[in-house]
Amino acid sequence: MSTLIVVDQAPYGSWAGREALDMTLSLAAFDQPAALLFIGAGVNWLRQQQAPEGIGQKSLEKNLSAAPIFGVETIMASASDCQRYGLTDANTLAGVVTVDDTKAAMAGYEQVAFAG
């Protein structure tokens, strides 16, 4: 069964996103197909050069970059939300696929779960 985890909340403000990443990696650990979709303020997860030492947190950018190693094949982001937050190819995490129609992207999965 394929599962899509949707992150629509900004990084660092809450634990919701980290829990989402945890859930995604847990699915991957048991070889369950899992993918991530970032929409709304959630796209800010994907910005390069996050340096959260000053707020005492680990870099979500670096955490997220481990996902492919653990078998999370697909990381998608809403194209319009990326544009709204000034995310371009130049400052976005490598390997992220932008999608124009998030509803269509969600339709490809049997299970869709919003984080937090």
């Binding site: 969600m106 339709a107 999965y109 049997e110 299970q111 869709v112 779960a113 919003f114």
Partner: peptide
């Protein structure tokens, strides 16, 4: 539970 079994797609918002 019965509803989750009856539906091929589930979205948890």
């Amino acid at each position: 539970v019965r509803l989750t079994e009856q539906h091929p797609r589930i979205i948890s918002w």
